[in-house]
Amino acid sequence: MTEKKYSKDHEWISIENEIATIGITDHAQESLGDIVFIELPKVGRLINAGDQVGVVESVKAASDLYAPISGEIIEVNNELTNSPQLINSDPENSGWYMKIKLNDVEELKKLMNYDEYKETIK
């Protein structure tokens, strides 16, 4: 079963069999505006929740990307290198940027569900 969570840094985390697919939320892409560049993390890197893992740049400004959970990066979305605008057009689906093999499923409890996230962006 797929479960979807949200972080305070405006990332969505979709979990299936201890693999988390991560991207930035529709709200985040909307406020960033036209995205023109993404610096993706390296596959194989071990990360802790809160680590800075990459950079996303819109026409307006650069914003850091933070790991919402701990684990090992097992895949990044290389398609974004040539088509960063996918983050604008399909943020919560084909606009994902990394997949993480989770260290600790318990960490997911610290993340928000959709309703809780929605409250934070009101």
Binding site: G33, D34, V36, V59, K60, N88
Partner: peptide
């Protein structure tokens, strides 16, 4: 106004 719904690009 920084941009409209059309977007900067």
């Amino acid at each position: 106004p920084i941009n409209y719904s059309t977007g900067i690009i």
